[in-house]
Design a protein around this nucleic acid. Sequence first.
DNA 1: TTAACCGTTCGATAGTTGTCGAACGGTTTC
DNA 2: GAAACCGTTCGACAACTATCGAACGGTTAA
Lengths: 104, 104
Amino acid sequence: MADDDPFPIPDMAEVELVDVLRALGDPARLQIVRKVADGEPWPKTDDTWGLNISKSTLSHHFRTLRESGLTRTIVHGRTHDIQLRRAELDKKFPGLIDAILREG
Amino acid sequence: MADDDPFPIPDMAEVELVDVLRALGDPARLQIVRKVADGEPWPKTDDTWGLNISKSTLSHHFRTLRESGLTRTIVHGRTHDIQLRRAELDKKFPGLIDAILREG
DNA sequence: TTAACCGTTCGATAGTTGTCGAACGGTTTC
DNA sequence: GAAACCGTTCGACAACTATCGAACGGTTAA
């Protein structure tokens, strides 16, 4: 069963806009999302997040992003990738990701 | 001088996207913004906000919205209107307001 | 198998935030 | 002027959150 998935993500149908916005309303998380906005998997160890935070804090933000419905986690042995659920998000919230990428 | 303005708003040039998103990342505030999304002034006393909160809490949210750059306050004697800074926001963050209005 | 590595989780902490009722100041109405 | 009204501010409080270091478990490499 997939119940053992250590990194479960909410069904997009259950994702609430307000939760997505709250997840985006943090400098570290917004920066992460912008980086992974291409929809490709990015290694969590990428040293170019540009964030001056500890690895436990970074892990916390990854979890918040995932639980809000923004991202999914892909496990490769001992390394993880983070991926924006771009297609699903674009369908559920048209224009939202585009809007936060256009630097204001 | 306008320094006495009791409800100062930030210059749109100084408004940060992350602060706007954080302001929107609350159920009460998101609902308010959606209501005033037409860009018209709405009386704060409007009894159709649909929020079950005290007037002091409502006042707190109005302040948060204003300080984040989303709204302005228009004083009419003892009553106040709240107005979304729609045109400015659309220019600074194209598509953002539209995106949060499209019910996902 | 031992060591190094990746990332999470735990426990603690300080700061922020949403909430309320009471009090207050300004405005309108009587 | 007195009373009613609108909305903010204040003080308090509980809940949440961002942060860290240490410890841990799983995976890969030596």
